[in-house]
Amino acid sequence: MTLLDFRLTESNTIPLDSLAFHVGDTPLLPLRRLSRSLSPRTRVFVKAEWFNPGGSVKDRPALNIIQNAILHGDLGNGKRLLDSTSGNMGISYATFGAALGIPVTLAVPASASSERISILKALGAELILTDPLEGSDGAILKARELAAERPDLYWYANQYNNDANWQAHYLSTGPEIIRQTNGQVTHFVAGLGTSGTFTGTSRYLLEQLPDVNVIAFQPDAPFHGLEGLKHMPSAIKPGIYDESMVGTPLEVRTEAAHEMVIRLAREEGLFVGISSGAAVVAALQVASELDEGVVVTVLPDAGYKYLSDKKLWEQDWSPTSPDVGGDV
């Protein structure tokens, strides 16, 4: 079931652009070469979130946030959608905003990659660039300030505190994983940014499969290069962050994620972004400790938005023992 199906069954009065229909129902792909060292009874699968129309997992929460706001009369009344974003959420807001005629204003750290800034401008979003030294938390504070100053102009979407964020994953990502694994998922692994993906998906999985293990991961230090992810002990904690469900998160070092994006590209044909590399590092760590299991993680986006980091993609890496053939 997609988010759109859910909304249409609840109310068929919402006018939606057809783009919305293609949000969610992303492919679940097996890791084959990268999982060779695991127990033969352990499999690792990844949700390929770059198949969403806006190019990332953030289409799910952005669409759900916008649809809820329209439903409640918060948007569609001339107000601008306002939020802070490190990039992907902004691209999703701008995509659906453009399609639905909703103007979008985004507080974005000036250090956001040039690709992301260019995409946001292409989609017509108004950008307010914030102090790069403050990172995404500086953008959060700027959005809060603007929302407080001009409530007449802005509707503050507030992805870090908006329940429609995690509910998007409860309504779509969770059910998809159950369906695509025929209910056989044993471990779910996701990174913490807003914590929406982890919280919403985990809540649904735990309701349906009480024995499932849910494992969060975060960067290993406050200063890191895992775009979109937060080191929770040193960051502004999202309101939707559920500490009791997270437990003790795994920690991923940026360099390990960098190496993994190259391995994913060259050994699996999966050209993905840095947080996806981190997700696979964490998922393989979980899987390596299992005798038997089905591990699922979420790969938030593709590698295109990181191409300006040329050194990242020119790392030396060749598979040690090429394994030719198999299904593509």
């Binding site: 990039g87 250090s111 990172g135 406050p222 200063f223 290069g225 992810l229 937060k230 929770m232 502004i236």
Partner: peptide, 13 residues
């Protein structure tokens, strides 16, 4: 000279 964090970097709150 400016040292730039990754953009989701944290603020000590």
């Amino acid at each position: 000279v400016m040292l730039i964090p990754s953009i989701a970097g944290g603020r000590t709150s």
